[in-house]
Amino acid sequence: MSPADQYPRPKGGHDLILNAIGMSMVFGGLVALNGVNLSIERDSVTALIGPNGSGKTTFFNCVTGIYKPTRGDVILYPAANLPSISLKGLPADVITQRGLARTFQNIRLFNNLTVLENVLIGRHCRMEAGLWGALTRNKKTRAEEAAGIEYSFDLLVTYGLDAMANELAKNLPYGDQRRLEIVRALATEPKVLLLDEPAAGLNISETAALRDLITHIREREKVSILLIEHDMSLVMNVSKKIYVFDYGRLIAEGPPEEIQRDPKVIKAYLGED
């Protein structure tokens, strides 16, 4: 533990990268999230499941700063030898800079920009050029721009989208759009990647490819993943730990085998009786 560690790491030998404590979100009178605790282990895939409207996406929005949570705190442990950071109250763009990136349930690409530009925008928070650089196009800006383009192309090559680099994002087939959203999020060099229903709308072979993709990101890019998903075979296959939400509460947590047998989870999905 580094001396500057404001938020002590939980005991028990787990090396956490993100710890959300007591997250609550109230809309008007509706309690969408009710004191949820959730932690993500470093270099693991953690899944978040639950029936529709159980607060999964709200949780994502609270963690990534799109919503301001009513109560609760999110603590990021960037690395074992780096001090921890509280993400509480930070705006979305700062949270992304700190190392959280996400995708959206309904794809939110920049439709009228090219595939490459979409990824380049993901590089935004890792680049520095400002107004002056843009207007003068000085040496530093040009070098940074070239490096950004190269980095983005490399990512596109790695994830098989380079052939369409100059195509407008809206013209991509659906499956590629989903993949581009993940690549765009990866371009921000995240420590934690939050995927909101990445398999929605994909067919069986596409889902299988997505499973490989998730494994690849975790193993090779060293990115920890939090995954919201309804496709149970995908969730059970890739995740180390599963959290189950129902009506804004955490009703179960544990490894896949345990969750599959948990009576509370079965009840939440299938109802009483």
Binding site: T64, D93, T96, R102, F104, L109, F110, N111, H124, C125
Partner: peptide, 11 residues
């Protein structure tokens, strides 16, 4: 193009 996604990209 998208105000929410742009913030999520660190802008």
């Amino acid at each position: 193009e998208d105000e929410i996604a742009c913030q999520a990209m660190g802008i």
